[in-house]
Amino acid sequence: MIEVENLRKDYLVKGAKEGIFSRGKQKKRAVSDINFTIHPGELVGYIGPNGAGKSTTIKMLTGILLPDGGTVRIDGLDPFHQRKQNCRNMGVLFGQRSQLWWHLRLDDTYRLLKHLYEIPDQQYKARLSTLREILELDEFWQQPVRQLSLGQRMRGELAAALLHNPSYLYLDEPTVGMDVLVKERIRELLGEINRRDGVTILLTTHDLEDVERLCSRVMVINHGNLLYDGTMAELRRRCPADSSVTIDIDGEPSLPDSLRNVKREGNRVSFNFSRHMGEGELLAKVISQNHVRDISITEPPIEDVVRDLYEGGEAK
């Protein structure tokens, strides 16, 4: 279980030049008083714009950075002061940084990791064959890493992060730079790892589709503040962004005046509607007053939902 209480981190940033020599230093709060708990087996998406504090949080969870305030406990361990012990139970993957040996085959890196984590032979063999199967590493097992495609390499990286059978997996931008198909494949694999071994996964991403397809729970951070923590569905419900409705009607439509953004194209009528503003009645009225042949509702794109959230956060 990951328990985070009032977690805080400040950065000193060089301010604008004041005079010729003195350069004022300003404190910038990267993460301010964040609280959350992640239970074993959860798959949590952690999203926010650049510089929102995502990476800083991950670095505090993994014991790279010392928090300025508050506590982090991972299964009761303090990740910074009990770093080595905590490391044995976590896997980390930085999408921008490779841990694989560029000119060698995958298994060279894995054998080195086996030695670093002191994994017993038996356990290593069993684990490796499982990972080779799940991540389908066999197709490029013989090639040096420099010849692998981005997707293949990421699968190799995943295996490297999971080799010592950690209970926690932290992923920092795992799908960055990938094309749609490869992204989809990586998502599937992450889901499978989460289901199969019950690995708790926390992933930061820019790609909201990652979160939507994968995560049962999402946390949104901006300017160091945790703006939202809950399910995807709840996030949608809370958000004021419009859904769009398209209906096919037999005969002349009769529509209430209060409908927004109405567009007509023969028998097809489309308009905007927001669950948030309690316009459900309006929709019911449209359906009862007309002979509706077909209806389709398009949820607002997740980007809009989150943008609303960020903007709300900024106003605060």
Binding site: M90, R97, Y117
Partner: peptide, 13 residues
């Protein structure tokens, strides 16, 4: 500068 050191800090060595 680019955080490559982080990869060394997440290992038990």
């Amino acid at each position: 500068l680019r955080g490559g050191l982080d990869l060394y800090l997440v290992r038990p060595v």
